[in-house]
């Protein structure tokens, strides 16, 4: 509470400094928005183009319409809503577990000294450099074996797909979270240890709350990555009705000469909605998570 005065002083000083310099930030924002949105305009135009082609520069009036969206929802060959539901289910479950497992591993790497820690970290990174394109055959053969033993976890099941997704838990997520844990002063948990807290308590009561912003980021990134995963899902899910958005939509444009870009673009646009909603909801944690924490402290 003693810092209120200094806070105010700092704020006034900042205001004076920044008042006349704010415009360039808006300019940067504008340029960034243009850069981010321009290609999306093309996706929107393609979605509105009833001829089924990708939008071209030459626009005419008959190239705008909602036909593609109608096809998307009414054609029994594309159970779009079902794909949507599948994707949300698989991605959210897998994202939650990925973050959980990644966080646990990151905690060990950040806080516990053990033999071969540095080597394991290096090895982990090396493994990420192995081309996934080639791992697929091995993963597929392994899961076929699993299918023979436990059909409920095998090829063609969502549970099996989630399991495969969890295989990637210990990758980048672990790094991101570990990197963040490293910035949390060790004195905090050392003090807690002196006070008699167990490793579990330190993890849940001290580290996790401080890490909320980055966990939210990781969860969001994991969710986006899973929503857009095409390669693994296309191998494991072969039934048209039991597939995910990315795979189902890809089917629309994978025909050799017959492609339906319009419907595809319409589907892809709608697929981005959950990501945006989720981001809106998580923004508070990502951006203001620690600020509110520090006021309490």
């Amino acid at each position: 509470m003693t810092s209120v005065g200094t806070h105010r002083a700092v704020k006034q000083k900042k205001r004076k400094l920044k008042r006349d310099r704010l415009w360039w930030r808006y300019l940067v924002a504008l340029i960034a928005i243009l850069f981010a949105l321009a290609p999306l305009v093309w996706i929107i135009l393609s979605a509105l183009n009833p001829t089924g082609g990708l939008a071209t520069v030459s626009l005419s009036k008959d190239m705008l319409g909602l036909d593609n969206f109608r096809t998307l929802f009414n054609n029994p060959d594309y159970p779009y809503l079902r794909w949507y539901k599948n994707s949300l289910m698989v991605s959210s479950i897998a994202a939650v577990f990925q973050v959980m497992i990644g966080t646990m591993s990151a905690y060990a790497f950040s806080r516990i000294k053990f033999k071969g820690r540095r080597m394991s970290l290096g090895g982990l990174l090396l493994l990420q450099m192995f081309p996934q394109l080639l791992s697929l055959v091995a993963i597929f053969l392994f899961m076929s074996k699993v299918s023979d033993i436990v059909p409920a976890l095998g090829i063609g099941t969502f549970a099996g797909l989630i399991l495969v997704y969890l295989g990637g838990s210990m990758g980048y997520n672990t790094y991101l979270i570990k990197g963040f844990f490293d910035t949390i002063p060790r004195e905090l948990d050392e003090a807690a240890t002196v006070d008699g807290a167990s490793a579990n308590q330190i993890f849940f009561k001290i580290i996790m709350p401080l890490a909320a912003p980055i966990l939210a980021v990781v969860a969001l990134l994991a969710f986006i990555g899973l929503m857009n995963d095409f390669v693994l899902a296309s191998i494991f899910l072969t039934k048209t009705e039991d597939t995910t958005l990315a795979v189902g939509l890809h089917g629309l444009v994978s025909g050799k000469y017959e492609t339906n870009w319009g419907v595809f673009a319409a589907g892809a646009l709608l697929a981005a909605i959950p990501v945006v909603i989720l981001f809106q909801l998580l923004q508070r944690f990502i951006v203001e998570g620690l600020a509110s924490g520090s006021v309490k402290g």
């Binding site: 060959d77 597929f140 095998g154 063609g156 296309s234 494991f236 089917g251 994978s254 025909g255």
Partner: peptide, 13 residues
């Protein structure tokens, strides 16, 4: 109806 059916033949259960 299934597009990309040839590739799916390789992995279908």
């Amino acid at each position: 109806g299934k597009d990309g059916g040839k590739d799916k033949l390789a992995t279908v259960a």
